[in-house]
Design a protein around this nucleic acid. Structure first.
Length: 273
DNA sequence: CACGTCACCTGCGTGC
DNA sequence: TGCACGCAGGTGACGT
């Protein structure tokens, strides 16, 4: 589920509660959730680690620990939250880190994930997890010139390329559809057909969609507990049959690279505008 | 290299 | 009500 803005929202929520806490023990309730190392080594190594910082790289949550980096990827249905003392593990809790914080009792950092796609890594080599990612779309490295140049370097459909985390890191299905609509580009347009001016529009649209998503605390679909409200401001995503906010034409849903894709057939033409 | 297909999983909405 | 089916904020391994 979560894309960059949802992950950022989670990071901002967790940071004040986690920084300074000590991980007293780990309970692995679905061992495949631990991508690296083995579940047993994970439990051994993480015990006694202190949380020095909480950050984000693309859709990865990054906990800087005393001796390791802990990365969490929520994939489609994962969530990460603090549970207070005395909670009972719930149905889809896959990993629980028991926390010993100054003054308080034993809280838990819980990784809940209905579909079991989410993964965690505990490593002293961050690049082994996030080393192949493209630039952060909200960083200075992501410029209109960079986007234009690198779009032209490939011959790909725009949307699958924007979803490719090695190309650009953080976009998912929602924000890609939203950005392409705002930029008036068709998701199946060839990346090397994008003009300088179109790349500038796309760059601005990507930044705007993500920034707006963060400002609204992300989107909550089947996921109300975060209080995100970006879903109330979708231009095209999940709005098939409803009017385009720009021209009133009915939004159409198609499949692009096996992903549900939402476009305004009038605003977004395959052939350049 | 680009793209299609399937796999990984569970839950929910829809339609019969 | 029951049940089959399709679809879901993601990614990665294949095959062509």
């Amino acid at each position: 589920m979560p894309e960059l803005p949802e992950v950022e929202t989670i990071v901002r929520t967790l940071r004040p509660a986690l920084v300074g806490a000590e991980i007293a023990a780990a309970e692995t309730r679905w061992t495949r959730t631990v991508a690296f190392p083995s579940a047993r080594q994970f439990r051994e190594r993480i015990r006694g680690q202190r949380v020095l910082g909480v950050g984000r790289r693309a859709k990865f949550i990054h906990l800087q620990l005393s001796d390791y980096s802990l990365f969490v990827h929520l994939r489609m249905s994962g969530d990460l939250y603090i549970k207070e003392d005395g909670y009972k593990p719930e149905k889809h809790d896959r990993l629980i880190l028991r926390l010993a914080s100054r003054g308080t009792g034993t809280r838990g950092l819980v990784f809940n994930d209905a579909r079991k796609f989410g993964r965690v890594w505990l490593t002293d080599d961050p690049d082994s997890v996030v080393g192949d990612l493209g630039p952060e779309p909200l960083s200075d490295a992501f410029t209109p010139a960079w986007l234009h140049e690198n779009l032209r370097r490939r011959h790909r459909q725009l949307k699958p390329l924007l979803l490719d985390q090695r190309f650009l890191a953080g976009l998912g299905n929602i924000y890609t559809d939203e950005a392409l609509h705002a930029a008036r580009l068709h998701p199946q347009a060839a990346s090397d057909s994008v003009t300088r001016k179109q790349a500038e529009r796309l760059h601005a649209a990507i930044r705007a969609a993500l920034t707006e998503g963060i400002r609204r605390n992300g989107a909550s679909i089947d996921w109300a507990y975060r209080g995100g409200e970006f879903q109330n401001y979708f231009r095209v995503y999940d709005r098939q049959g409803s009017p385009c906010p720009v021209c009133g034409t009915k939004i159409v849903k198609l499949a692009v690279g096996q992903r549900g894709t939402h476009v305004c057939p009038k605003c977004q033409k395959k052939r350049s505008v």
